[in-house]
Design a protein around this nucleic acid. Sequence first.
DNA 1: TGCCGTACTACGCCTGTCGTAGTATCTTCT
DNA 2: AGAAGATACTACGACAGGCGTAGTACGGCA
Lengths: 111, 111
Amino acid sequence: MIGADAIRGHIDLILLSILEDRPSYAYELSKTITDGSRGEYLIKQTTLYTAVKRLQSQGLLDSYEDVSTSGKPRTYYKLTAAGLKQLDVKRAEWRSTRALVDRFADGKDTS
Amino acid sequence: MIGADAIRGHIDLILLSILEDRPSYAYELSKTITDGSRGEYLIKQTTLYTAVKRLQSQGLLDSYEDVSTSGKPRTYYKLTAAGLKQLDVKRAEWRSTRALVDRFADGKDTS
DNA sequence: TGCCGTACTACGCCTGTCGTAGTATCTTCT
DNA sequence: AGAAGATACTACGACAGGCGTAGTACGGCA
């Protein structure tokens, strides 16, 4: 099971990555993540909505309403140019973090 | 550069891993981490002292004073049996987290 | 009519990291 | 002897992100 602290700071990367492929909406995003984690991580609605709004407020995401489907109109989110750029930054940071943790977690020396 | 949020939740794993090899004290631990990160992550003293105390209060670390060295006596920390067990748990969680983030960050499908 | 799934919002708690700052001891250099 | 620097540690509060809990609202379907 993946805890909140373990995933913290990487959710933005996950969201940005998913949205790189295609626009999506909050509910679908949560399902995508839950499905993709094979039951090891269940993202909370609050966490997700907070995250997308944060990303949007940072100019990394654009949103638009989809009125074509029946039911309540969905708010779709898509990457902005800045979001794409930030995705690169986040990916680089992830690689660094992964390398650092791996270096110690494996019990290897730093030499 | 590795930010606080990126490393959050993995510091325990790093500390436990280092202490698996041999006992150490806070100041040395911070240097070990800083050196091992190749300048990409500088752990703050407060963060470190808070972390070791938390781990100790959870029974994962034991501490003892070293009076043999000159200077202020150092508080050494060593893994307990519970700490070793927790290290396994943390390692497993790290592998899960890494797999999850990689799965999305690489833009790969979940199939 | 009532339940289920979808879509979203509000409020406040908790934890962990960090910023800042201070204390104290010992070594080394001059 | 005095000062600087490395070592060793503590205290206090700020802040952000994830989470728990709860509630609203709409459509479809039986």
